[in-house]
Design a protein around this nucleic acid. Sequence first.
DNA 1: CTCATTACTTATCATTTGATAACAAAATAA
DNA 2: TTATTTTGTTATCAAATGATAAGTAATGAG
Lengths: 145, 145
Amino acid sequence: MNKSALFHQFVAFTATIHQVTHDLTQNITAANITPLQYKILEYIKVSQPVTPTEISECQHMSLPNTSRELRKLQERQLIQKFSDTADRRKQYVRLSKEGEKMMEEAFACIEERFLQLIQHATQDDLKDIQHALAILEEKVLRQNG
Amino acid sequence: MNKSALFHQFVAFTATIHQVTHDLTQNITAANITPLQYKILEYIKVSQPVTPTEISECQHMSLPNTSRELRKLQERQLIQKFSDTADRRKQYVRLSKEGEKMMEEAFACIEERFLQLIQHATQDDLKDIQHALAILEEKVLRQNG
DNA sequence: CTCATTACTTATCATTTGATAACAAAATAA
DNA sequence: TTATTTTGTTATCAAATGATAAGTAATGAG
């Protein structure tokens, strides 16, 4: 099998994934949130509690800029910070009640849009999709990062 | 089968795809190109010739901003514009020789990184991957856009 | 204790990107 | 013909993001 052909197929695939992600997530929050801030909230939502350093690394941004965005999110009552009792330099970030509500609504909206995407899928189709996702995770994405 | 579970699997999958895309494409050009400009060149590369209006729509940006970025790319000799002989309002954009060279090098670099990702895959693995990509394209991504 | 390191903040500046108004030229419709 | 629409440009402003210097407080190593 031709690896180069597989590469081209993969590139086309990722382009489509990016397009679909854009469609699924556009206009997702009424709140006046920047794209970067949404990304950060999304990460906190699925990984909380997280430290600013972790956010900084996962979002590929500098710690000062992370700190600035977290301050804005805290001012808007969307997140809360707690300092580690053992190591008081460290901080843990969580969504506030309001932030949780906002992100849950956002996720619900994305899920609804996703379900529309697969509305005509049969049970067999769903199994195929699930299996395909698992194959790619295992054989391409989980290789070493 | 639980569609909601599939949704969560899909979300995790797309997050990983975005991460891998980031890794595959980071520091890809020596040229002093902004991320947006790279995206535009990438689109031109695979779809040329394209009009500014098409770029504008596919990249989700306004026509004035598209025009500005194209001007910068033209000043840097990375693209060329031609006006349509039939409808002289229209313009066709292509990569210049230099732009082609740059993008081919970029793509070659990305392909090399991708091949590393699947370096341990057997022939059967490759067939599985190819099939998985096809399934997802057909049953999720090509539903209606 | 002293010194270096870690985790984070504040401040500042540059660059990139987005938004919008105003315009021009060509094509099309009336 | 005149009016309208399409395609694109230029100019300008605002906002978002990136980069970096300097500083604080806590921890840990020696």
